[in-house]
Design a binder for these strands. Structure first.
Lengths: 179, 179
DNA sequence: TAAACTAAACTGACTGGTCAGTACAAATAG
DNA sequence: CTATTTGTACTGACCAGTCAGTTTAGTTTA
């Protein structure tokens, strides 16, 4: 029998994979369990509810992204901060495509229980991009942060959908040039 | 009895309002009918299905936006095209907040029947922003278009959520960028 | 001019399927 | 001995979609 940690990992991975393809609400708990090769009861034993499961998946993903951004921001040279942060963001998307897709699709939704948590992270990301702009001595109002963040997400998404058509360097250059 | 057009309008308006607050999938046809002050059967008489109803709402909204962008693009002076298109886009969001929210929330989803239609419009918008960039003699690759489009959407969304905190001019300036 | 007719518009109770969540006894692992 | 996992069967809520019947507006007939 698998250890607790392994079961959790298998479930989280299957949940991410399926939701990336079909969306969260179209993914049934029975299907997740089947895809993970695990009993439905184990999902509830480990996560309590479907909501709890996806809250954890989104939370993990967002926290990881936040940490990445924080690090790249702190180590970046002044004048290169925006580029550095945008690149860190894009790398994150690339390394965890499934959960990233889920997050991206949920980021604009208004009807989910984890709306608050998502909104919190959104404003955290905003503030970090603003910080990067400041460090580069560029205008750093809320609109400017939103603009940079928006272009980064959109370019990242585009890149995820059309795999290798767009190099990391090209993508970052476009983001820098946009605003 | 109300004329056919009136009933349709009431239903579309209620559908937009509710979906903007709770999302499409969390909005029951029963609730739409109740909010519109109309029997559930009338929804099906007029639109055939829930999917048909929202397909029409999204289609209308996207087409209107597309037209707006086309016009502003065609009348814009070279050098001012990006600003002009971005402003047109933001104005559209402002004038139809409910249906715009619905569209924005659906724009990144992977699991809907109207995914194809949305994707089509997304690439139409992309190409118009690319055209605007060209007209302004700026780099106009796919990444650049995605970047501008992303920043426009994100700033517009931010503006919709925090109503008057952000003037149209400020928003457009942030999208255009300082350089 | 009013009665009869017609078709389109509308109604709302009902149906059938889906799915989150529960129950629990038995098996396995550390 | 305790925590974890399994498998199966079940419940109850929710909700898209249906349909037989009712209302309305407009038109024809006598």
């Amino acid at each position: 029998m698998a250890k607790r940690g392994e079961t959790r990992e298998k479930i989280l991975s299957a949940a991410a994979q399926m939701a990336a393809e079909r969306g969260i609400s179209a993914t049934a708990v029975d299907d997740i369990a089947a895809a993970a090769g695990v009993a439905k009861g184990s999902v509830y034993y480990n996560f309590g509810s479907k909501e709890g499961l996806y809250a954890e998946l989104l939370g993990e993903t967002l926290q990881r992204a936040g940490q990445r951004l924080r690090e790249s921001l702190d180590t970046a040279v002044a004048g290169d901060a925006v580029r550095s942060v945008a690149e860190a963001f894009l790398r994150g998307l690339q390394e965890h495509p499934a959960s990233s897709k889920v997050v991206a699709a949920e980021l604009f939704r208004l009807d989910r229980p984890w709306r608050e948590s998502l909104a919190e992270y959104r404003s955290l990301f905003f503030s970090m991009f603003a910080e990067a702009l400041e460090k580069d001595d560029r205008p750093a109002g809320p609109a400017n942060a939103a603009a940079i963040f928006g272009s980064t997400i959109m370019v990242g998404f585009e890149r995820m959908l059309f795999a290798d058509r767009l190099s990391l360097a090209e993508a970052v250059a476009a983001i820098e040039g946009a605003s």
